[in-house]
Design a protein around this nucleic acid. Sequence first.
DNA 1: TGAAGCCATAAGTGATTACTTATGAAGATG
DNA 2: CATCTTCATAAGTAATCACTTATGGCTTCA
Lengths: 105, 105
Amino acid sequence: MDKESQVFRALADQNRRILLDLLLESDQSVGDLSDKLTISQPAVSQHLQILREAGLVSHRKEGRQNIYSVDAEPLLSVASWLSKYDAFWDGKLDAFAGLINRKRN
Amino acid sequence: MDKESQVFRALADQNRRILLDLLLESDQSVGDLSDKLTISQPAVSQHLQILREAGLVSHRKEGRQNIYSVDAEPLLSVASWLSKYDAFWDGKLDAFAGLINRKRN
DNA sequence: TGAAGCCATAAGTGATTACTTATGAAGATG
DNA sequence: CATCTTCATAAGTAATCACTTATGGCTTCA
């Protein structure tokens, strides 16, 4: 499977997007993440593996904990793919540009 | 399934992204699209149905042909979701902004 | 050292996916 | 009308998915 499909597929699951959202707030251990979802710890580990394979998260060991953090680089290729649709957004593009500019200023 | 997952899932298949790319060039019939892919016509129809359910394409009948066209609006929510990662792109964000601005000017 | 905590991996399951071939409905054309 | 074109839908299949429970390897700590 090509890398782009792998990234989209990783993002296609709600629990995985929640995991990314949680990691966006702060790096966290698997246990911390598990406590915040309604699925089992192994399920969380499996989702994290898929996110890892898509390059969207990385992890470091701290004692017996495994601390995960976001790695947003693959999303750049998603953004690049999206940019092909600029012409179709017309006026709405300004709203989009506003969205991506919001945090810059 | 939530709408956002549906859009990501629709984009997670390479053939469906190719279909969108083709439709980005011009509105086309199912037969035209079929000729350009290596899968069967029913497979193309099935992919188009998934894209329709995600709101990414629409179609109009012209005689016995079914002409499909891109409907990019759902991609705005993808773009909005992506914007949460601005802070993680740091310097790379400029490249991203360049990408989305390219076609504007 | 031994018990407990943290986490990945294994194995099993039902649901979904992405295709195929077969078919039939609806519109154009002789 | 009879036929051909275009396309969606049906049915079947092998592969993949998202979970579960069970287990065991490390690490920490009493």
